[in-house]
Design a protein around this nucleic acid. Sequence first.
DNA 1: CGGGCTCCTGAGAGCGTCCTGAGAAGGCGT
DNA 2: ACGCCTTCTCAGGACGCTCTCAGGAGCCCG
Lengths: 205, 205
Amino acid sequence: MAAAIARGLEAEGFVVDRAGDGPSGLDLARFGGYDVVVLDIMLPGMSGYTVVRTLRAERNWVPVLMLSAKDGEYDEADGLDYGADDYLTKPFSFVVLLARLRALLRRDPQPRPTVLVVGSLSLDPATHVVRDAGHEVDLSPREFLLLEHLLRAHPAVVSKETLLESVWGSSDDVNVVEVYVGYLRRKLGRGRIETVRGAGYRVPS
Amino acid sequence: MAAAIARGLEAEGFVVDRAGDGPSGLDLARFGGYDVVVLDIMLPGMSGYTVVRTLRAERNWVPVLMLSAKDGEYDEADGLDYGADDYLTKPFSFVVLLARLRALLRRDPQPRPTVLVVGSLSLDPATHVVRDAGHEVDLSPREFLLLEHLLRAHPAVVSKETLLESVWGSSDDVNVVEVYVGYLRRKLGRGRIETVRGAGYRVPS
DNA sequence: CGGGCTCCTGAGAGCGTCCTGAGAAGGCGT
DNA sequence: ACGCCTTCTCAGGACGCTCTCAGGAGCCCG
């Protein structure tokens, strides 16, 4: 299948590299400097989900088009949640694949990171939707902003002063940050935000 | 020139509308529901580049063929970067234009629909018809425009300020937006438009 | 082991955002 | 001129959000 697609794309003038399993595909995507990645979900060694999630966690925003035999709506949402840019279910015509690829290629030269993903947690700044293991979580504006900053910093530690500055726009009492971290922990689970005594907070992987 | 092309295409069986400047062309392309657009680069009021870029930014994937007197390679790349599907430099023969147009029409067997559809809700900018689960809904012009913008943004959140700017053309009191969201909710059902406190409104999937 | 510090958390007051009903002003067709 | 529809303003009120405070728990150090 991969060979067939590669041949077709080369016939259309694309320059194509091909990987046979998940890990080597991830490496190619990391260091190959590609314009677009076509990614199957079912892969030996590492699922396509994991590949795209890993890329996004490394702040790699190369456009990704996912392929899958599944066609449930949940699967599609999953793929897009993990950071894929488009989705195609088998069977598909080669012409459609071409059209979608061209659409991806002519998008913004620097597509903004649509979704922040860490582990089973995802936050979409555009839709203001936060999901934990696929289950939607309701956050207040302040809580949302705080989580967004923590996720953007992931996996680094962020000091309370920094959070106060960037989320609250400078107030004077850092206790507010502690209170809101408490709110987030109550909604997301205790382990989602770690306290680093004397330094601040971080979201563990 | 535009008149000559229009006559020629009509003689070939196409149904043609024609705009004399950039802004009106953009409006036609937006709401006309065309199968293909022929677009000159040099236009009064707004360049062809801007027209096609605006269309793509609005997720409008109508096939666009650009025309220009320039023939540098850079120009061609520019046009295609902004989202044009093909490019023709003057002078060109009418037969070539016809062939390229037919190729564009053949290309994507499943062009992105111009009708906006989210769930059981559909809005057709061309006919100004809104349906909810097959049942037609009567909207005032302002209500229609507001819903259209929300649907185009789907599933992203749109701030009241943005809506005020793009639907009302900048007033000063965002309460108007709240009132009209109320009107839409009354006609479409409560759950069709979500309030995202502190951020704006969104149409859920 | 005890003191001091950092961090957590429950309670509650105040405030802001958002919703809604009422109604005035304007446009348009009859 | 009349009635209908649309648009927009205004004010009241509900509810959720934000933040403060104070006490308590946990950690580090002497």
